[in-house]
Every structure is written in C-alpha cells, then in structure tokens.
Simulated scan of single mutants.
Amino acid sequence: MSELVTKRILASSHNLYRAIFAINTQAPLSQAFTHKSLHRTGCLRCPKNTMLAVAEEPHVAFLQSPGLGHIIPLFQFAKHLVLHHQVRVSFLVITTGASNAQNQFLQSATIPPQLQVVNIPQSDMTDIITEDMLLLTKLCVMTQESLKPLKSILVELKPKALIIDIFTTQAIDVCEELSIPVYSFFTASTILLTFSLYLPKLDSQVEGEFVDLPGPVEVPGCPPIRTNDLLDQVKDRKNEEYSWYLFHVSRMPLVAGIFANTWQDLEPVTLKALKENPFFEEISTPPVYPIGPIIKDDEFLTEKDAEIGAWLDNQPTDSVLFINLGGVALKPVVEPGQEVIGREEVKRVVRAVIVGEEGKAIRRRARELKESACKMLEKGGFSYDSICRVVDIWKAKG
C-alpha cells in the first residue's frame, strides 16, 4: 500500500475522534522489537521509594489500528502506566501499510525499558484492498487481516490484559479463547463515546438516514447532537464505512472496562449518564474509567514552533486568541435562508468573547479546568486513583 493511501486512511480515522475537547497526545519512541525478542533479560527500573517487587509488576499488552493518529495516544497511555504505575507493557504494532512517519516515530527516541514494541508481521493485502474502497473501510480491512497471528503472539506474551482501540475489537474473540480480559481506550470525548454506545439502538429504531431526522439525535442523559454534527461515517448508512463503525461500537459492551481520556470536571454530564442512566445500564455498559488528561510529555519543536510558542508566552494575561478549528464556544446566528454568517454577527461574537460576560465566563472556566487537570494525575487525584483501581485488578490475577 502506498504511503499516500496510508496517510489518507490516517486522516480519515482522525476525523472519527472529533470532540468538544481535543487532547493532543504524542510521545517519542525509540526502537521496535519482534515478538521473538521478548525474552531478553534486563533489570527492572522502578521510581525511587517504590517497594514493589518484580513479581508485582503486571504485564499488559496494547493493540491499536494502524496510523499515528491511533498509535500516539495509546503509546502515551502505555508509557504513563510504565512510568507511574509500575506496569510492564508490550506494545503491539500493525506494520502492514506502515508509513515512513510511523516507522520514524517508532525509532525516534528513548523509551522506558519496561515498554517493548512488538511488531505484528505484515499481511499481504494484494487483491484485498481495492482502489474503490473508502478510507475507513481500507483501515478496517487492513486491521482485520493483520490480526490473524494475534493468538500466537498473545500465547507467547501471556499478558494479564489487552488494551485495544475502537477499530481492533476482533481481538475480543481471540482474548475470550485465551481468558485474557480486554479493555478499550476511547481517546475522544465522552459525548462521542455515549453516541457510539447508543448507535446500535439508533440503528434499529430509525429508518432512512440520520441526517434526515426532523430534530437532533437525543442520546439518553446527554446533550442533543445536531444531525449536521454527526460523524461523516454515520451520515450515509448505505456505505461500508458505516457498517464497519457500527460493527466495532456494537462490540464495546463486551470489554471489561473503558478508559476515557477525560476527567470528571471536564465532562460531568456525560460521565454521569454513562454511570447512572438506565439505558447504559440496560446495555451492560462496562465500567468507564476517566484517566485524563493523558497528554504528551515531550516533543520535538521546530524553529517555527518555538517562534510561535515564544510569541504566545509574551502575550498579556487573559489575551484572547481566535482559532477556528471547526467549532466555537459561542455560536454565531445565521439568518434564515442564509448559509454564510454576516460580518456584523462575527463582530458580535468576537466582541462577546473579548469583553463580554460570556467571554469572562469562558476564561474563568478555562482556568478552573487547567487547575483541575493538573491535580487529576497526581497521587490521590481522581484519574490517578481510577488507574490504580484497574492496576490492582491486574495484580490480583497473579
């Protein structure tokens, strides 16, 4: 598969993770190992003042679909488990159709000795991937073909658990045979998570296209979602992308738990719905563990990046930076029968953000979330304790 096709697949899959709050997770990785090299010996490195014995370090595996948009967030979580929770990690990587950027990322920097990369052998995609396939379909087919040797790899690794992403749910069947619990790491917002869990029900109740519904989609216990804001992959139910997305999200209730890259203060409404709403109890939603914010802890900055960062640092406190990423906190009003926002309306919204009470409330909320985020992953923080609960489950497996 060409590098161009792989990059397009990555771009398409990235669109699936659009959310009201985007958390950029990146981290460097230095070297890759085949699964045959896992038995090499080496000393374990634990943080100072840690009394854990080697036998108490649970070993878990990660598995994600191809592309940096999927690899980077799960790798950052894997690295966090190694460095802060004394977990040993085998990080499984699908190499079929890997881009140069992916290979460079996996060989670019030092990683903890207790995090080892396991390359899944490439699969021959000749006559399987066709040019007329849509991008998400190509990604899902490539992933499914690449997972054929998964059982033998897991038999050798013997992990206490497997952590997957949204497009590798075929691993659930393999792990059921091997009695390995599976967890899903959902990297987008919990609004998208609740919609994804509700999609099978919506699919069974609605005839025709969701975009033709007379009103917004009402997800139980959550804010309504405008049909225009739905994922591109669910706007056309006749294409294969929709079928693949529905297939994978329908299997999410089968996992032992769902890690969500969020925290209580950021998305309280949807987290409460996932825990308490009768619908999510009815479909046996697994426990949802808020573990965020898992963010990048280092990255290479270009000269231009450093220049932009320095400019931002020199701006006055409470400055307003207007960035249009496709969504805004204050929504301009479009006049009936028009598709373009008028100049005066843009001026009104900008003025409200800069000097209005709404803008002050947004900046106050941002400061509160920043302070809250800093505490979540500290010892005793909500997300830290949430991760500890799962790690204790892994340790108890012996």
Rank of each mutant, 00 (worst) to 15 (best):
K151L: 10
S152E: 15
I153C: 09
L154H: 08
V155Q: 15
P159A: 06
P159L: 02
P159F: 04
P159H: 03
K160H: 10
A161W: 01
A161I: 02
L162A: 02
I163N: 00
D165E: 13
D165I: 10
D165P: 08
D165S: 12
I166Q: 08
F167M: 14
F167L: 15
A171T: 08
I172L: 10
D173I: 01
V174F: 01
V174Q: 00
V174I: 15
V174G: 02
C175R: 00
E176H: 13
S179F: 11
P181A: 11
Y183F: 15
S184N: 13
S184G: 03
F186L: 12
F186Y: 11
F186S: 06
L192Y: 05
T194H: 03
F195L: 15
F195C: 04
F195A: 08
F195K: 05
F195V: 04
S196F: 09
S196M: 13
L197C: 03
Y198T: 05
P200M: 09
K201N: 12
D203I: 05
S204D: 13
S204K: 14
Q205I: 08
V206E: 07
E207Y: 10
F210S: 08
V211D: 07
V211F: 13
L213N: 10
P214Y: 08
P214E: 14
G215S: 15
P216D: 15
V219K: 04
V219M: 06
V219E: 02
G221E: 02
C222F: 04
P223C: 03
P224M: 10
I225Y: 09
T227Q: 04
T227E: 04
T227L: 02
N228P: 00
D229S: 13
L230F: 07
D232R: 09
Q233S: 12
D236R: 09
D236G: 06
